[in-house]
Simulated scan of single mutants.
Amino acid sequence: MFDGYSGSELMAIFAMQGFAGLILFSVLVLMALGLAIIFGQMGVINMAHGEFMILGAYVTYLTSLFFEAYLPGLSSIYFFVAIVLAFIAAASLGAFVEWALIRRLYKRPLDTLLATWGLSLILQQTYRSVFGAREKGVSLPDWMMGSIPVTDLVEIPINGIIVMGLTLVITFSVYFIMQRSQWGAKVRAVVQNRPMAAAVGINTSIVDRMTFALGCGIAGVAGSAFTMIGSTGPTSGQLYIVDTFMVVVFGGAANLMGTIASAFTISQAQTILEFFMSGSIAKVLTLGMIVGILMIRPQGLFTLKIRR
């Protein structure tokens, strides 16, 4: 596999692919954070999570068109406006879906899987009807273009650094919300003992709706980050949903540290292996590694200790 490469070339390849893996890691972490909140806290298997990500990507695309047409002097900052709008759009749709569909299916995980899979097909067709089947790309501001040379062989793209910075901000924000805020305490109380949480005055239905909306909103932010590294199509979300579920299951549901460690392991393994072999073989090897580890530790890398 390494035949024909010198030592310096291999080091450069591992460095470049490692950084590319960090960019994939950033998108997977944002996707997995939202899914871990929904699946870990609520027990809902959301197969439409990728479509919430693509909603955020399309909102970013529309925002870029709006700034180019009506506010060209401010086009350099459109991405930050798009992040906020993507979160609002995805969270609002998530709150509506929870109210109209998910709240009727709690404690029925297989039903939520089928219902959200049907929702994903509906959203895909909606995107195809509105935006067309061809992929859309956004125009990056000039200050996001280019790369920073590290060595003669290694360069770091600026937009990748921005995506990773965004991921850090969102990750710390989620940690603060879930572990240090009053609302996060309510969420944890509902997870640990729903009847007792309701008995002390917590509106569990509102907590469920806001939790689902938060998870979907984070997926929308992941869609904004995704536009920095790839084009957007109606079915682009399905390319990430399997990897996202692998991250959540491998890391341990409802555990922030497990989600981050799992996303890092999977992204680095896939990106480095894809350079030396085909993408499908790299995914098979990565999945085989995860299955092997889960056979030894089926609860995932990290788990929360919850009294049952």
Rank of each mutant, 00 (worst) to 15 (best):
G220E: 09
G220L: 10
G220K: 10
G220D: 12
V221K: 04
V221F: 09
V221E: 04
A222S: 14
A222R: 00
G223I: 10
G223Y: 11
G223T: 13
G223A: 10
S224A: 15
S224R: 03
S224W: 03
F226A: 12
T227L: 07
T227C: 13
T227P: 02
M228C: 10
M228T: 13
I229M: 14
I229A: 13
I229Y: 05
G230L: 06
G230W: 04
G230R: 11
G230F: 07
S231K: 07
S231I: 11
S231R: 05
S231Q: 11
T232S: 11
T232K: 04
T232H: 09
G233D: 01
G233F: 00
G233C: 07
P234W: 00
P234G: 04
P234R: 01
T235W: 01
S236Y: 03
G237T: 10
G237W: 05
Q238V: 11
Q238H: 14
Q238F: 10
L239V: 14
L239P: 11
Y240H: 13
Y240F: 15
I241C: 06
I241Q: 04
I241P: 01
I241G: 02
I241T: 12
V242A: 11
V242R: 04
D243C: 04
D243G: 13
D243T: 08
D243M: 13
D243E: 06
T244Y: 03
T244E: 03
T244V: 10
T244L: 08
F245N: 10
F245K: 13
F245V: 14
F245T: 14
M246I: 15
M246D: 02
V247D: 04
V248T: 10
V248I: 13
V248K: 08
V249D: 02
F250D: 01
F250S: 06
F250Y: 08
G251W: 00
G251I: 01
G251S: 03
G252E: 08
G252V: 06
G252F: 07
A254N: 12
A254C: 11
N255D: 12
N255V: 11
N255S: 14
N255E: 10
M257T: 14
M257D: 02
M257Y: 14
G258F: 12
G258Q: 07
G258Y: 04
T259M: 05
T259F: 03
I260E: 00
I260L: 14
I260R: 01
I260Y: 04
A261H: 03
S262W: 11
S262M: 10
S262A: 15
S262T: 07
S262H: 09
S262G: 09
A263E: 05
A263N: 04
F264H: 06
F264S: 01
T265A: 15
T265F: 15
T265Q: 01
T265I: 15
I266T: 08
S267T: 12
S267L: 12
S267V: 13
Q268M: 15
Q268I: 15
Q268G: 05
Q268K: 09
A269E: 00
A269K: 08
A269L: 15
A269D: 02
A269Q: 05
